[in-house]
């Protein structure tokens, strides 16, 4: 009895810590949502904790950005979803296969490639922006969807991440499958992937988040309305004169929703890996 009680109290304590700490982390997001519901003149009037109270809440800011003639918010949203979705889907496939090949299939030269990939992660995007533009422009992709997708499919970070986790998969598992007559691809598909759900989820989430917030690149390659992304699309709200903070917060709230949904969707794959049921360790 005593032990069960102790366990329960323990769990309650952990929950309490999570919620309290969590509030510290989510407060800006909450503030943003509250501000998006307020009339413009009240947003910065309240200071401190008072600013988290949704006074005179209404949806005017949302209506204003969703129903202006000149700005097709939903279209921009779709463009972003499509291009980032493509990056995530294709990227996860391409990068995990590459990582698997480098770690488990060790072909000639794979060691060297590994070092190159780490080196590539070091490159700050700001330093290759202009040269990359030159390359993409030479393909004739300016104002075309491939310019938003293709350069970002292969990602050093993702490959690096997959490598770390594939390394930990015991070779015994593969050897067992191999004896059953599976080829290396089948081993990948039937052994590696099911045992690595958490890392696939992490790679997908982090890749989505990174590219969802991209601004500089889409701005430069995608000026055409038909493929404009949402981060670029909402920039008209930030022009120097007469910034409407309420509308900015509403737009940012709307652009945050897909990321949160994606996160919640993928985080359910954080299940205990089969490898940990005893084979390893």
């Amino acid at each position: 009895m005593n032990r069960i009680w102790k366990k329960r109290m323990n769990k309650l304590g952990v929950s309490l810590v999570i919620v309290l700490l969590g509030l510290l982390f989510i407060s800006p997001l909450l503030w943003m949502i509250v501000a998006s519901l307020k009339p413009e003149t009240l947003i910065f009037k309240d200071m401190g904790l008072e600013s988290f109270l949704p006074k005179q809440a209404n949806f005017d800011n949302y209506l204003a950005i969703l129903f202006t003639d000149s700005v097709n918010f939903l279209k921009y949203m779709w463009n972003s979803l499509f291009s980032v979705g493509m990056i995530v889907i294709l990227g996860t496939v391409v990068n995990s296969l590459c990582a698997y090949a480098l770690v488990k299939l060790k072909f000639p030269g794979s060691g060297f490639i590994l070092v190159v990939i780490i080196a590539l992660y070091v490159v700050p995007f700001e330093s290759v922006l202009i040269p990359l533009y030159v390359v993409v422009n030479s393909f004739g992709w300016i104002n075309e969807f491939p310019s938003l997708i293709v350069p970002f499919i292969a990602e050093a970070f993702s490959i690096f991440l997959f490598i770390q986790f594939f390394k930990g998969i015991p070779n015994e598992l593969e050897e067992a499958a191999q004896i059953d007559g599976a080829n290396p691809f089948q081993v990948f598909w039937k052994i590696v992937v099911p045992n690595s759900k958490p890392v696939f989820a992490t790679a997908a989430i982090l890749s989505f988040v990174t590219h969802w917030s991209d601004f500089m690149w889409p701005l430069i390659v995608a000026t055409d309305e038909s493929i404009r992304t949402v981060q670029v699309g909402i920039q008209y709200l930030f022009t120097d004169n007469n910034i409407e903070y309420g509308q900015i917060m509403a737009a940012l709230t709307l652009t945050t929703i897909p990321v949160v949904l994606i996160f919640i969707f993928f985080q359910r794959y954080y299940v205990q890996g089969i490898t940990s049921s005893g084979v390893k360790g």
């Binding site: 391409v94 590459c98 090949a101 488990k104 299939l105 794979s110």
Partner: peptide, 27 residues
């Protein structure tokens, strides 16, 4: 393993070369 290893890494390597190594070289 050797064949497929090479094959599996080709898409990523081609893309990395075109859109990262090449720009880095230009820089």
């Amino acid at each position: 393993k050797k064949w497929l290893g090479f094959l599996f890494s080709v898409p990523a390597l081609v893309l990395l070369f075109t859109f990262l190594i090449l720009p880095v070289g230009l820089a």
